[in-house]
Amino acid sequence: MTVLAVTGLQKRFGGVRAVDDVTFSIVAGEILALIGPNGAGKSTCFNLINGQIAPDHGTIHLHGRDITGLAPRQIARLGVGRSFQIAAGFASMTVRQNLQTAFAAHHRQSWRFWHDAMGAHIAEAEALLARVGLVAQADRAAGVLAYGDLKRLDLAIALAGAPGLLLMDEPGAGMALAERGALMRLVQKLAREDGMAVLFTEHDMAAVFAIADRVVVLNRGKILASGDPASVRADPLVQARYLGAGR
C-alpha cells in the first residue's frame, strides 16, 4: 500500500533548481533513505513534503490524498510525523509530560482548559516511554537530557501522533556512534511493528546501508540513482559523484 507518492516535484530558489523533477513513493512499513551531498536538495525535499514550503510544480499524495500546498499543521494532522535534525523537546516539562502533551494534541484535546494534563494519557505515555527506552528519564526535565535521550524524546513525540509516515532529518546528527546505531535499530523496529513508512536523510552511510530498504540518491536537485542499498552502492555513477572512490 503506497503511503507517500511524490510526483514531478520542483522547487526553485532564485535561479537555482533546488529540487528538480523528483518522483518517488514509499509503501507502508518501508524505510527509504534520501542521500546526497550538501546542497543536493534533501532538506528542500523534506520541507516540501512536510509543508514548510510549497512546490513550484509537482504533486504530493498521502494515502492517495493530494496534500500539495497544505500547511505543516494540516499535514501533521493527516498522519505525517517528523523528527528534527536539531532535536527539540518541550524543555520546561518532564519527559512524561512531553508525551502527555503530544498525546493530548493527537487526540485533539489541547483546547481543554479544565482537565488535569498530568492525569491524562498516563498509560499511553508509559507504553511509549518503554518502547523508546526512556522509562528511567520519565520524571526529568526535557531541558536537561543528554543529547541522545533528547533525540529519543523527539522521536517519541513524533510517534505519539501515530504517524503513517515518519520523516527524519539526519536522525544520527550529533550523536555518538553507539547511540546512533541504537536509535536507527529502534526506528527499524518501530517501522516493522507499526507498518509505518519512514523517509530519512543521513550523512552516515553505515546507518543508511544498515537499515534502509531502499535508497534514493539526489544530486543537484535531481535523482541520480535509486534502488536497494546494495545496487545503489554498486552504481558507478553514485560512486563517482557521491560516495567517492575506494568505497
Binding site: 518541550f90 520546561s92 489541547s110 481543554r112 494534563a117
Partner: peptide, 9 residues
C-alpha cells in the same frame, strides 16, 4: 491543563 501544556510546548 492540556491547553496550558500545549501553550508551553
Amino acid at each position: 491543563s492540556p491547553f496550558g501544556f500545549a501553550l508551553r510546548a
